[in-house]
Design a protein around this nucleic acid. Structure first.
Lengths: 118, 118
DNA sequence: TTATCAGCTGAAGCCGACTTTAAGTCAAGC
DNA sequence: GCTTGACTTAAAGTCGGCTTCAGCTGATAA
């Protein structure tokens, strides 16, 4: 797959994909002889994974470390711990969201009351 | 309350508090005769509200508009809609988080399996 | 054949959200 | 009366995360 196809598939720009590869957020993408990127299934899976993680705010740094360890085929335990740490961060974030939503609900309710009165 | 006390109470820097006032994220804080900020209960409630919203990623722009309408004591309906829009954004975000966490769970599970084998 | 794509690289630019700095005021304690 | 430390402002700086640009190559199609 070309970078253009991948960018459509995952709804992100080609620039972002190149940027991700450049900073090591995804492993180096295989190339054709002329140097053009040729995304295989593995590369696509990485894009999918990183896109998902980023959409929830998982930090780029953590992902870069994870990818590097995968590339080096090492740090099994560390890899697992990165995932666990990030999960913990997300769970905390979900809890924060929950309580903010509650607060918004409460305020919205208050406006409903106001409208009823008039 | 001084800005220093408020910053301790809400665990944010005095710089951030001044910044928030400057851009209209909280209404103008009452001042003593010498110009020093003197946070009253209303001001504190605003800080608390904005801190909560920002911790969940509610956009500054939306909050600024909301605060401005409150100050002008107008746009009742619009105010309610701002809150509803932001709630919708947060709910979407919570859903995204939930599915990312699931994906992480799955990957972590995979590492567990690997460790069991060895 | 020429022009118009899609792709390439490296570097500079941009945006949101603070944070720091420079230069100054003011009140309390020694 | 001077130092200390908390406060003031406006403006510049920082940082993460892209995004855009300049200048190039190489393949396709009118």
């Amino acid at each position: 797959m070309t970078i253009g196809e991948v960018s459509e598939k995952f709804e992100m720009t080609t620039d972002t994909l190149r940027y991700y590869e450049r900073i090591g957020l995804i492993p180096p993408v295989p190339r054709k002889k002329n140097g053009i990127r040729d995304f295989d299934e593995t590369a696509c899976k990485w894009v999918s994974f990183v896109k998902c993680m980023r959409s929830s705010g998982v930090q780029i740094e953590a992902l870069i470390e994870y990818v590097a360890l995968m590339q080096a085929n090492t740090g099994l335990e560390r890899r697992k711990n990165i995932l666990i740490e990030q999960r913990a961060r997300l769970i905390k974030q979900a809890e924060t969201l929950r309580s903010t939503i509650e607060r918004l609900d409460y305020k919205i309710e208050h406006y409903e009351e106001l409208f009823k009165k008039n």
